[in-house]
Nucleic acid binder design. Structure first.
Length: 510
RNA sequence: GUCCCCAUCGUCUAGUCAGGUCCAGGACACCGGCCUUUCACGCCGGCGACACCGGUUCAAAUCCGGUUGGGGACGCCA
């Protein structure tokens, strides 16, 4: 089926920017939050538009009034904003174009590309069930396809409700198109039933609305999930019947869960919500960077991209054809989501300019009630230095408020393992640490160099390994079993705090 | 069930169109080592895949056919 030559590293049909401006769209249906699958679709469209100097249209497909909600619309917009995906037009609302959809349906009717069908839902259901019972493939049998104008008029006179069906050409051959990702895709006319384009209540269906909107919005490239692949031949039929030019189609592989089921809001919940990542300390661009890699590759070894680099590198031809798995394990004690996503987030956390990280950390500290206005004022240098010191081993922004609490507050829990292993296991620390604290206190200035000298001499004098008081100090001062160099920390946190926390050792032995 | 799509390490993938440079490269994860006051970073090393069967060819991950496996779509949802 697929024409191999249509894909690969050689340029595929996707450029064609000379003819007209590139226009793509992201058309979410507002029936829930923005999930990572939708975000990825939006991202690919956005990248493609940016790459070609085109426009991205945001169009809310809200024709399913029963399921569409205002919160959902806001949630999607918030999600896109947070990710930094900007659009050039919209949001447009599909519901505002209902008249055009109806007009298009009437045009199809008038031109003989569609017909009224009076079969009732019950009749159809019965036929479908019968076919299923006989293990036969069900397709609409065309009962109303050849009704004479008189018959139609008679049924309408009786007030019988009717849907409008598209009249699929009953000819040999296939409808096909060159997908920018999958290559040549074809479907036999015989395999396409006369599908419904307008409900019996007069409301047009998605398949039609979507095409009408794309024509009106002058969409040149339809980049969407592979679950739309089988719809495409039918939509092409509509384009042709409406006398419109076909856009280029590019179907992207789906994102599956570990059980290889399509991820969905319904079955996967918050773990697939963009908002979840915002709330769990992800940097927006880190998520975007991770998502783009799910089904796309630049063709070389690069995996970390700045915005500009990604726009430059992005291409439809780099999209894979096979579905990818979003590798998260529920209840994994170590990784709360895909390890690679976490890794990319950690990468940005420790490599971005500290000034870019600071405002994001500020938000986390504010949420935890740990923010001090001075961190943005006279203590700004100290604050930035703190982040520089601790960000190296953090994976998310929330870590600053949890694992890093001791840097911003005097009340902080001490990691159990740190306490037992580095403090309680060595009862002599109960006397040693206050003594060390006294020596620090006696210093004119507690610099890193002085702290190191004093600590080492102290250990030697007491006949213990330097690691003993140092690691104990880490537990008591930072609450953690791991962390930055303690000598630097003694200086950075200041004599007063260091001495005070060291002297607290006794209370833990009770 | 029918139609469509897909198939390389556990996961994301490069390589497939233009067969040989691939006893298959990178990243994450995992394991070991170095570094070190701890952990992390970093560096070094290890583990680990062309689904299967045929065919074409001097030569196949790559081309062809089939099998198996997986996914998607089969609504008067979007």
């Amino acid at each position: 089926m697929r024409c191999r030559s249509a894909r690969g590293r050689t340029p595929r049909k996707e450029g064609d920017t000379h003819m007209s401006e590139v226009r793509v769209r992201f058309p979410p249906s507002p029936t829930g939050y923005l999930h990572i699958g939708g975000a990825r679709t939006a991202l690919y469209n956005w990248l493609f538009a940016k790459k070609h100097g085109g426009k991205l249209v945001l169009r809310i497909e809200d024709t399913d009034a029963e399921r569409s909600t205002q919160e959902s619309i806001q949630g999607i917009i918030d999600g896109l904003n947070w990710l930094g995906i900007t659009w050039d037009e919209g949001p447009y609302f599909q519901s505002e174009h209902a008249a055009e959809h109806v007009a298009a349906a009437n045009q199809l009717l008038a031109s003989g590309h569609a017909y009224k069908c009076f079969c009732t839902k019950e009749e159809l259901d019965a036929k479908r069930e019968k076919a299923q019972a006989n293990k036969e493939d069900y397709k609409y049998d065309g009962t109303c396809r050849n009704l004479t104008p008189e018959e139609v008029a008679a049924k309408e006179a009786q007030g019988l409700p009717a849907v409008i069906r598209f009249k699929v050409p009953r000819i040999e051959g296939k409808v096909g198109f060159d997908d920018a990702v999958y290559g040549r895709v074809e479907r036999a006319y015989a395999d396409i039933e006369d599908f419904v384009v307008v409900r019996s209540n007069g409301l047009p269906l998605y398949l039609l609305c979507n095409v009408v909107d794309d024509i009106r919005d002058r969409i040149t490239h339809v980049i969407r999930g592979q679950d739309g692949l089988v719809n495409t031949p039918r939509q092409i039929l509509i384009y042709q019947a409406l006398g419109a030019t076909l856009p280029t189609f590019a179907h992207m592989p789906l994102t599956l869960d570990l059980n290889k089921a399509k991820i969905s809001k319904r079955s996967h919940g918050e773990i697939v919500a963009v908002q979840f990542y915002r709330d769990h300390g992800f940097l927006p661009w880190a998520l975007a960077n991770f998502l783009v890699l799910l089904g796309w590759s630049p063709g070389d070894d690069r995996e970390i991209f700045s915005r500009e680099e990604l726009i430059e590198a992005f291409s439809l031809s780099g999209i894979t054809r096979s579905n990818s798995i979003f590798n998260y394990r529920k209840d994994d004690p170590k990784f709360f989501t895909d390890p690679k996503a976490l890794n990319i987030n950690a990468h940005y956390l420790r490599s971005l300019p500290i000034e870019e990280i600071a405002p994001l950390v500020q938000k986390e500290l504010e949420k935890a009630g740990l923010w001090d206005a001075a961190y943005a004022g006279e203590q700004k240098a100290w604050f930035l230095q703190t982040l520089t010191l601790i960000r190296e081993r953090f994976h998310t922004l929330t870590d600053f408020a949890t694992l890093g609490r001791a840097y911003f507050a005097d009340d902080f829990p001490i990691d159990e393992q740190a306490l037992t292993k580095n403090v309680l296991k060595h009862p002599e620390l109960k006397e040693l640490l206050p003594e060390l604290a006294d020596q620090f206190a006696a210093l004119p200035e507690l610099t890193a160099a002085e702290a190191e000298r004093v600590a080492r001499e102290f250990a030697e004098a007491k006949g213990v390994k330097p690691g003993l008081p140092i690691n104990a100090a880490r537990a008591l001062i930072t609450g953690q079993i791991k962390g930055p160099s303690m000598f630097e920390l003694f200086e950075h946190l200041g004599k007063e705090r260091v001495v005070k926390r060291l002297r607290r050792v006794a209370q833990y032995f009770n």
